[in-house]
Structures are given as structure tokens and as C-alpha cells.
Design a protein around this nucleic acid. Structure first.
Lengths: 228, 228
DNA sequence: CTGTAATACGGTACTCAGTACCGTTGAGCG
DNA sequence: CGCTCAACGGTACTGAGTACCGTATTACAG
């Protein structure tokens, strides 16, 4: 009968009690007691009662920062896409835990607010990165950076919530599609990949014709020539 | 020597103390004492310590809801613009108070989080309204509603913050410009711009091959078939 | 085996936000 | 004058979060 570490026991106890009695009706003492530890130990592992539900937003923020940092000017948009995918994958890896958290944040407004604040921090990273990428600190450029960051975050949240609700079987490709739609909203600035040295390139077009008519030819075009 | 009502004295005392000692270093007792009232009276006028800074978000929410409700299908976008302008005007009317609040939310993360949560509620109203307006509950339509709402909110925040920082002399027309830019991002669904009734379609791909090799074929593909 | 340093833990006591309840005051009004 | 109603003040409580102190366990050097 080897016990799991206190940190895990606390999280398990917290989620169980939140399910049974609700969030506000559960005190930190209750959680600590069920986990078989003292109250002090709870606060040693989690900074607050809310933090037991959102354990590693800080780590996730660092991941995003790192991914964005390792990108050249040319690959900026790829970095954004990758970083967003990173966040989604993080939630997916959590699996059922993420869904239980979603159920809680849907009911308890204090938790929903906290979640929103976390998302805003991601969005801020994206905004700063995009603004930096665009250079040009004019009024309209910074508005565009703001819009882009907001759209990127919104697209991610949209796909994430669909997956959390069980409405999406393949959230990763859904995210790619959504990101494509977002990037298509914003015409590429500067001189996008003029005489570039090759490598992966992101292309976006807007056209008036039907998607279904266009798709097969495009797929042939891309896949045929890359040999994938 | 007629005293202003307690509600005002409390707000004044709160802002003064927050400026002097900082937010966390000020207790509710301090505020009540400086205002010359009891602690109970503070909580009678403001639900929480934070609420003394954000007095009427609820009222503002109602204003938005009302403005959105009084609109036909045709005038939906106008209603959105109006509602957003309503929020901006509300802040402008507050004048210096809004700027002091901004100074506080810039320093104290707890207050910034609360502000963000409030904005999220506005955004939610817009998202629901836009989704409702578009009808069509398909995956891509609800994503578009989400993106639009996020962009609308982002545009508003952008202009508002510029004004709060004293970077904008005429925020109202700036907002109109920004809203115009936002709405330009999203082709009107009801009246397709092209003659083909199918609406504009946006496609994005990622490929490993060189952009220059891809561009001519793509251009032929798109332009050749649309006749543009 | 023994002293010691590091780590994790439990307990107590405190501050402060927020809630509940009760008694008091004062203004208006018959 | 007696009544009512609203605003207020005081007391007491719960619960989150912090600070501090003492203790058990482990590991490791001697």
C-alpha cells in the first residue's frame, strides 16, 4: 500500500470534494484532511485553493515563450502556430483532468475568471511577439497586432472548448484549420518570403470560389510536388 | 460643510489610500476609517474591496445587452458598433477616474485580472449576439463568431487603452476607424461580395517546398478559375 | 554507529476579506 | 407624540493565506 506523493493526493482529494460538495462548499481544511496531510502542507504544494486546479500555467507560459523565442523573422507565423498547438497538446495530454477542470470552471465563476486571466497572459505573449515581429510601431500596426493576437487566442479557445465538450475527435487538425482561417484574415505584411532560402513556407490566399472545388487541386498541387 | 454621501467618500478614500500605500497595503478598515464610516457601511455600498474601483460593470453590461437587443437582422453590425461605442463613451465620461483606475490595474495583478474578466463578459455578449445573428450553428460559423467577437473587443480595448494613456485625442473616431478595420476583416455573410452566391472562401496550406516554385501554379489556379 | 544538515511535515497564531445578525439613530409622517 | 423605514455601527464568525516554530525522516560525512 504505497501512497502516492502528497501533491497528487491533494489534487485528487480536491477534485473529488469539488465534485461532491461544490467548490465554495469545500474548505482547504477539508482537502488536507481527506489527503491525510496538514493544512500547511496544502499551501506548501499549491499557492492557493484555486491553484490546485490550475497547476502549471506558469510552466506553460514558459513553453510558449521559449517556442516564440526560437524563431526567425521568416518563421514567425509558424512559431505562433506551433506555440498555440503546444498549448492545445498540453491540455489534450491532461485528458480527463482537463475535462474535470472545464466542468468546474463552467460552474464556478471565480474559477472561470481565473482561467480567463490565464488565457489573457498567453494572449499578451502573442501580442508582444507579433507586434515585435511587425516592427512598425504605428497606430494601425499595433491595432493589427492586437487583433491578430486576440484572434489566435480565440481560435485556440474555440477548438479547445469543442474538444473539452467532446465535440471534436481530432482537435489538432481542427486547430490547424482554425489557425489557417485566422492567418488568412490578415494579409501578410512586409515582404513575406521573397527571395528566401527555402524551407517551410506558409501561404494564404483569399478567393471567391467554392472551397470544395478548390481543395482537390490544391491538395494535388501541394502533396504531389512535395512527395509526401 | 455639507458632506458628500458615504458612497462617494468611500471611493475617494479608497483611491487616495491606494495611491499612497498601494492596493494590498490598504485594508477595508483603513478605507472606512478615512471615509468616516464603519466597516459594515463599506460592504453595504461595495460588494468587495475590488468593487470600489469597478463600480458599475453590471450596469454597463445591461446597457450593451439593451443596445444589442434593439436591433433587426439588417442592423446587427450597426448595433455592435454602437454598443462598443457605448462602452468607450462610458469610460470617457468617467474621465480622470478611469485613468486612475488604469494606473491601478497596471500595477496590481489582482485588479488587472478582474478587469480582464469583466471584458470577457462583454465579449461573451458580443459572441452570443453575433452567433445568433449568423444563425448557422456549424463549426466554422461559430468559429467566425468567436473571432469576430474577440476582434471587436480587442479593437475596443486597443483604442480605450490608447486614450487612457493619453495617446489619443479623439478616441471616438479612432474607435470607428478600428471597428471599420475589424469589420473589413470579415466579409459580410448575408451579401456575398462576389457574384457566385457561394461566398468567399479562405484556404491556407503549409508545405515544405519553396514559395517561389509554388506561387505561379497557385496564381494560375486561383486567377484562372475565378476570372479575376 | 554518531553527529549533522537538509527536507518535508504538522501545529499554532495571526491578518484580513467577507457574511450574518442585532441594536441604534434619525428623518419623515400620521 | 408614536410609528415606520432606511442607513448606520458594532460584534462575532468563517475561511483563505502567511509567518514562525518545532519535529520526524533521510542522507551523508566522520
Amino acid at each position: 500500500m504505497s501512497k502516492p506523493p502528497a501533491r497528487i493526493r491533494l489534487a485528487d482529494a480536491a477534485f473529488a470534494l469539488f465534485d461532491e460538495r461544490g467548490y465554495e462548499q469545500t474548505t482547504v481544511d477539508d482537502i488536507a484532511e481527506r489527503a491525510g496531510v496538514g493544512r500547511t502542507t496544502f499551501f506548501r504544494h499549491y499557492r492557493s485553493k484555486e491553484a490546485v486546479i490550475f497547476p502549471d500555467h506558469d510552466r506553460l507560459l514558459e513553453l510558449i515563450r521559449d517556442r516564440l523565442a526560437t524563431s526567425s523573422h521568416r518563421t514567425a507565423l509558424v512559431a505562433v502556430s506551433d506555440a498555440v498547438r503546444l498549448v492545445l497538446l498540453h491540455y489534450i495530454e491532461e485528458g480527463d483532468l482537463a475535462r474535470r477542470r472545464y466542468a468546474l470552471t463552467s460552474k464556478v465563476s471565480a474559477l472561470r475568471d481565473r482561467e480567463i486571466a490565464s488565457v489573457a497572459r498567453y494572449q499578451r505573449l502573442f501580442r508582444e511577439f507579433i507586434a515585435d515581429w511587425m516592427g512598425d510601431p504605428t497606430k494601425s500596426a499595433s491595432l493589427r497586432a492586437e487583433l491578430m493576437a486576440a484572434s489566435v487566442a480565440a481560435a485556440h479557445n474555440h477548438v479547445l472548448r469543442r474538444w473539452l465538450r467532446g465535440e471534436s475527435a481530432d482537435p489538432v487538425t481542427e486547430l490547424d484549420e482554425a489557425m489557417g482561417e485566422v492567418l488568412a484574415l490578415f494579409p501578410a505584411p512586409g515582404a513575406p518570403a521573397d527571395g528566401d532560402g527555402g524551407g517551410t513556407t506558409v501561404v494564404a490566399f483569399r478567393t471567391g470560389q467554392d472551397l470544395d472545388a478548390l481543395l482537390p487541386s490544391l491538395r494535388r498541387l501541394v502533396e504531389g510536388e512535395t512527395g509526401r
